[in-house]
């Protein structure tokens, strides 16, 4: 078994009606790098040229080892395409543990994928990690992400300025025991 296969076996896999949430792989890097090179990434610290995107992707992998959890790559079941990431996220410099999400391309928006994936990622954080009411940090101006946070039942709490990423808002997720927050339909 290669190191990559062993890593993949160590990372849980989640399933929703239309999506698989799984460990990040080398074969995801091109799609990740394309996202990082696009203006879409301006709300998550980008745009980044390919060499910096590589280091960022390496950190996405390494975060799993450093924390024991991390963000999943979202794969569309019908196509096998890697379309984004979501999951529990807590790099150094973050004010609190976060539930994060990104969709990597415009053509897979508008299908409810981000919400479907984020709810599964949240249920995982509540049930497997025992998280209670994490935050999501959303950079100012990212209205699509704010709409998703509202859809997920989050409440905007306060502003925060991240040293690297800039001005953002802290959105609080509903508590784990609140109806509909944890189990949803995907547990």
């Amino acid at each position: 078994m290669s190191i990559a296969q062993a890593f993949e076996a160590a990372v849980p896999q989640l399933e929703t009606p239309r999506l698989i949430l799984r460990a990040p792989r080398l074969s995801d890097f091109d799609a990740f790098a394309a996202y990082q090179a696009s203006e879409r990434s301006s709300f998550t610290g980008g745009p980044l040229e390919r060499n910096l995107a590589w280091r960022s992707f390496g950190h996405v992998v390494g975060h799993w080892v450093l924390r024991g959890y991390g963000i999943f790559v979202i794969e569309e079941k019908t196509t096998g395409r890697a379309i984004g990431t979501t999951g529990p996220w807590f790099p150094e410099g973050w004010p609190e543990p976060e539930l994060a999400w990104t969709l990597w391309a415009g053509d897979i928006e508008g299908k409810g994928y981000a919400a479907e994936a984020a709810m599964a990622g949240r249920a995982y954080a509540y049930e497997a990690l025992g998280w209670t009411a994490p935050i999501s940090m959303i950079l100012d101006g990212n209205t699509r992400s704010e709409a998703l946070a509202a859809k997920l039942g989050c409440v905007r709490e306060s502003g925060f300025t991240h040293a690297q990423f800039g001005a953002c808002s802290v959105w609080r997720h509903p508590a784990a025991d609140a109806q509909g927050a944890g189990m949803e339909a995907y547990a």
Binding site: F7, L26, W54, G58, H59, H63, E92, G93, W94, Q164
Partner: peptide, 21 residues
């Protein structure tokens, strides 16, 4: 490098093993 950037660099040191074997 501040703490956040050093953390990301270390994450990449680990992730490199998975990505490159």
């Amino acid at each position: 490098l501040d703490e956040g950037k050093a953390w990301r660099a270390f994450g990449h040191v680990i992730g490199h093993w998975v990505l490159r074997d």
